[in-house]
Design a protein around this nucleic acid. Sequence first.
DNA 1: TCTTAGCACTCCTTTCTTCTGAGTGCTAAC
DNA 2: GTTAGCACTCAGAAGAAAGGAGTGCTAAGA
Lengths: 357, 357
Amino acid sequence: MELTERKKKVLRSIVDLYIHNAEPVGSKAVAELPDMNYSSATIRNEMAELTAMGYLEQPHTSAGRVPSAAGYRLYVDELMSDYRLSLDETRSINTAIEEKVQQVDKLVEKVARMVSQATSLPAISMASRQASVSVKRFDLIQAGQGSFILVVMLSDDEVVNKLIKLPLDVAEEDVKQLMTALNAAAVGLTAAEYSQRLMERVMAAAGPAASLAPVILEFTLQTLRRPSGAGMVVAGQHRLLEQPEYRDVDKAQRVLTSLDEEALSNLPALIQNENGTQVLVGPENVARELKDTSVVVTKFDIGDGMQGMIGVVGPTRMDYAKVTARLSYFAESLSKLFSKPEQPQLPQPPKEEIKEA
Amino acid sequence: MELTERKKKVLRSIVDLYIHNAEPVGSKAVAELPDMNYSSATIRNEMAELTAMGYLEQPHTSAGRVPSAAGYRLYVDELMSDYRLSLDETRSINTAIEEKVQQVDKLVEKVARMVSQATSLPAISMASRQASVSVKRFDLIQAGQGSFILVVMLSDDEVVNKLIKLPLDVAEEDVKQLMTALNAAAVGLTAAEYSQRLMERVMAAAGPAASLAPVILEFTLQTLRRPSGAGMVVAGQHRLLEQPEYRDVDKAQRVLTSLDEEALSNLPALIQNENGTQVLVGPENVARELKDTSVVVTKFDIGDGMQGMIGVVGPTRMDYAKVTARLSYFAESLSKLFSKPEQPQLPQPPKEEIKEA
DNA sequence: TCTTAGCACTCCTTTCTTCTGAGTGCTAAC
DNA sequence: GTTAGCACTCAGAAGAAAGGAGTGCTAAGA
């Protein structure tokens, strides 16, 4: 059986209708569409064949048709018409991004919230540090008796710090010696290259303040190992309950629970090599618990070896065109935001104001 | 009408039963309780009076009784028996806390997850910086051409940093001068005390690197103003759906949505002056949307002016005894954890190991 | 005076039945 | 190749009946 143009048109119409009404689509509804110049009987025949071909399913004999996973797949890959974001939409996404992204460490969470709001679906977001990240420099600030601030700058320009309190009294030159040792031995190493050997080397060269070294190295290793940001963040879970397919609490619970348990944690690996926006329809999904849901994800660049990922989770019947459009736009805007050299984005008091005060 | 001992006993039994079965309690069920030496008819009379007094409610004529908000209130305040944590419970809470709390900035989120898991309910958690917090010291590390790491240590010992990139070439002594100016002028000031005057003063004394000052001060002010941590975090939302009262998706959605929208954001203010664990039963609640749910919250100390808050949200029919017990234990353990001077909690490689390697 | 057995009554819940109508597949005519 | 017509299917709504948990009240017993 061949997938004629007319069949495709019928299929597209059915998916479109189903996406918007969440109810099985009958031949009559399709036949009545403005640009469908065939009778319901003709459509019926086409639908029967589309069903035989596996693109449609019938909940029961006397119901209309519903797209199958294969149907959605075809729809996403070939049939769906581009959704053009309205000016309002782009504008609201832009202001959302510009208003909210000021603190980089909260970025991931905020992005998730924004995406969820923009799509009316639960959203996921994460930023991952690449395995190639290493330490660019160590600094240790002595901040009082037995109190030290460790500042580690990574090769991706993220800066992390840790307050270390140890009942330890070291002179300034001891701190310097330790730093020299650290910066000599441990800079440029990726997590994989940390070893006991390194520890030994640092300990040997560190001098009087050596007892700080294990704490510092352990912290650094942990930092390098863990993905930056808060790992994966999920936001707007409650929006799942707006979807008619999740009026069934058990279904909803299964999905929400698996989201909470990071069922999607292998998503990044999966999409690593893909480019652009990815759509995972139901059964194609990473986690078995999500086989009745679809996931749409896309990546964005944070610059310098950092990558971000945003996505949404929703019923297989989701408005793929709209969701992918919004998601892609989000990703582009974020990438753009990060590609500009970081401005002092803060409302910098202009000089005049200062003179006035 | 007087609230006799027997009435209290009946009320307690009813609340206990209702908490565990989530179904209206009939006189027979109460009468059959082991230490209830009265017939169902007697209980029936008591129940009728408890209803008249407002402690019980009747969903409909031929149903059993359900506690009213006033009934829960009385139960929580006077009737419920202490729940003794089992050794297993305390142990699992302890290991959870010790394993997970290593990174202070992720603390809030992790605590929320732990609490949610320990109580099988959605949990909230937040840490707030007191208004009295000020800056203890500024440090600026020059990290390459036009690249500076600002490190700000607050009076509550939290350390925050920011990478500043400005096309600016300054000598080391210029940085020193700026830091001297900052540490002279802006240390010890609370957010409220920041002013244009301060800015002027710093600018005047800052020397060649003065153009960094506005960025630094703006960032500092923002830091002082915002509550530390991620504001309020909600975790384990999906657990709400386990509760039979939220089989109704609309109900569940209302609650989850309001949680997401920080309907509880004025909780901290509300409990500020209270001590110990607080129970807010249904209508007593902060947010109108939560009038059918109860909130149990408690505070813990992070030390040095920081306070944490943890709580759970659940149906008015929740196991108050168990929940408050676990929550209190959590709070205590966390307070204890923070009151000890910070140990290098990290699995410090003992010296022998190093020699072996 | 307090307690309890007994009983009529209420009304929610469950189960069964019937009915309705949307949608189908097939056939025959255009 | 397309379409009108028609018998057929079947989920879901609507209605009716039965079941049963629980009540309030009364009157008898301790």
